[in-house]
Amino acid sequence: MQQSNHTRVDALKLSDEGFEQFVQMLRNKRSCGYFHTMEFARDVWGTKWNAYDQVIDLDAGELSFDTAWSCPMPLLVELSKRHPDAEITVRYADEDLGSNCGTVRLKAGETVSSEVAGRWDGMSEQEQQQWTAWARELKGWPENEEDDE
């Protein structure tokens, strides 16, 4: 979709404000390789926004946070590379309970083990129930809570 939007733009038909935004996107691409911050975030972080609702427990060596769309795996792999002696365990679940969740262990930027949910439409009903329960437990959401967010 983004590519089709880029090919349909006619710079001569843009408003003054739109033209200035277009020029700024070209400057961004030239200076850092990305048209806008969301493009950078998706490529480098693996998600469209920065983390939020962070909880850090230094004594336990744990932190938790929320991101948009998906687990920021590129960022976590880079963190693992920067701390090659540490094994980092990532447990994640998004608001689509059961379909984008799992556990990945990283060491020196490599995956040591991975147990993640498959595509929702490729899982059996039993697997869907298992992963939904797993995600609810990780998120701390009660089973009877409606997914209305």
Rank of each mutant, 00 (worst) to 15 (best):
E143D: 13
K29E: 14
E145D: 12
V9C: 06
H83Q: 11
V9G: 05
S70H: 12
N5V: 14
I88Q: 14
F65K: 00
R27Y: 02
V77R: 12
K81T: 04
N50L: 14
E125A: 10
S64E: 05
W45I: 04
R30M: 07
S114H: 02
L12N: 14
L14P: 10
W45K: 06
P84K: 06
Q2A: 13
C71Y: 06
V90I: 13
Q21A: 15
R136D: 03
V116D: 03
R27V: 01
N28T: 07
S64R: 03
R8E: 15
D148C: 08
H6K: 12
G102S: 10
Q3S: 12
L26K: 14
A108C: 03
D147S: 11
M38P: 01
M73W: 00
S99E: 04
G98T: 03
F65Y: 12
T7K: 12
E146R: 13
K81W: 00
Q129P: 00
A93H: 01
A41C: 15
E127W: 03
A135C: 06
D147R: 08
E115I: 08
P74T: 07
Y92E: 02
S80L: 06
L26C: 12
M1A: 15
E17M: 12
E149R: 07
G122M: 09
P142D: 10
K29A: 10
E127K: 04
D96F: 10
L106Q: 06
F40I: 05
